[in-house]
């Protein structure tokens, strides 16, 4: 009511105070803000609704398996849909082993690369290489799978694994015959997929370490490496942990590339050179073929398990990131 009427006496005064005609008069102008606010709020809130729905759907559709199979689902080793045996342990085992192995290899490699890019390389080169690493992260996983099948597996089979087995074959984890597709091959593909994540986040974190910290260290007579090792890395450690956790979460949930090189055999083998299976892979392979509601329900329960694992890992990573950037948040 007051709009347009407020100060309306100036209507009579010429020039500066003269009112301009208002097309957006009254109603629309007044309602625009709350409407727009409501619209954006709905969109933001829809994220929470969608995530809630996702959890609910996984939970509801896995009800049959949860009731029928109980906790035995997670501890049983037998997966034989035909005879109605559903044990998730081999998949959990395969998922965890490949991801952990991948992260163990990828972390030193990724952090090393990040240190080189942040500390040694000239800024221009560093930026170009960081861009290339980002491209590496953008390669679709099915293409890594393609390379895995036709490039990595033959290579491992012919030139890498035989000499390794000759030297280290007495260890149980490197024993047994090698057919190319294996937990080990899957881990290697995952390494290539996870390294870009670690490099790109770690590099950012390292570059964000204040110059004063480095200068203080140099001023005390440290070498470049001592500065990096004792000052820069500790300063950036939370960000690096976070990058590793994010990489781990990606490795755990990775589907296509792993499916194509792991051998898809539900077993718990002692050797890394034996074929295995992961949660994501079994869902990808058997979902459309699942006959019978218990079978489908068991696969969805596997999805729920995978969701649970990745949410915990991701949640930890995000908390670490939030803890490091909290000071920078505004608004």
């Amino acid at each position: 009511m007051t709009t347009g009427m407020l100060l309306s006496e100036s209507d009579k005064t010429p020039d500066p105070g003269a009112p301009l005609r208002t097309r957006l008069s009254g109603f629309l102008a007044r309602l625009g803000d709350p409407l727009f606010y409501g619209l954006t709020l709905c969109c933001a809130a829809s994220i929470i609704v969608i995530t809630g729905c996702l959890v609910y759907q996984l939970y509801a559709h896995s009800a049959e398996a949860r009731h029928t199979l109980g906790w035995g689902f997670l501890t049983s080793q037998e997966w034989n849909p035909v005879s109605g045996e559903f044990g998730a342990l081999p998949f959990v085992f395969g998922t965890v082993v490949t991801s952990i192995l991948a992260i163990l290899i990828a972390t030193p490699l990724g952090v090393g690369t990040a240190i080189f890019l942040a500390e040694m390389a000239p800024r221009r080169l560093s930026n170009i290489m960081a861009f290339l690493v980002d491209l590496l992260a953008a390669v679709p996983s099915v293409i890594y799978g393609l390379l895995g099948i036709f490039l990595l597996v033959p290579l491992l089979n012919s030139t890498v694994v035989p000499p390794m087995q000759r030297v280290l074959g007495f260890l149980p984890i490197f024993s047994g015959s090698f057919y190319g597709v294996s937990l080990f091959s899957a881990s290697l593909v995952l390494v290539i997929m996870v390294v870009p994540f670690i490099v790109s986040i770690s590099r950012e974190v390292l570059l964000a370490v204040p110059v004063e910290q480095r200068e203080a260290s140099y001023a005390l007579g440290s070498t470049h490496w001592e500065t990096v090792w004792k000052v820069v890395l500790p300063h950036a450690r939370r960000g690096i942990y976070a990058s590793v956790f994010l990489g781990l979460a990606r490795a755990l949930g990775e589907t296509m590339a792993v499916t194509m090189v792991i051998g898809n055999t539900p077993q718990i083998a002692k050797s890394l050179f034996a074929p295995g299976y992961t949660i994501a892979a079994v869902i990808a392979n058997e979902f459309t073929e699942a006959t019978g509601s218990l079978y489908l329900s068991a696969l969805i329960e596997l999805g729920l398990v995978l969701f649970g694992i990745t949410i915990v890992i991701n949640g930890l990573a995000r908390l670490l990131i939030l803890a490091t950037t909290r000071g920078l948040q505004h608004g």
Binding site: T2, T3, G4, L6, L7, A29
Partner: peptide, 16 residues
């Protein structure tokens, strides 16, 4: 401002 309390609840900010 011009005789109207700018901090009155009814004042339209846009117009002000």
């Amino acid at each position: 401002v011009n005789g109207v309390n700018a901090y009155d609840r009814r004042v339209d900010l846009v117009n002000l």
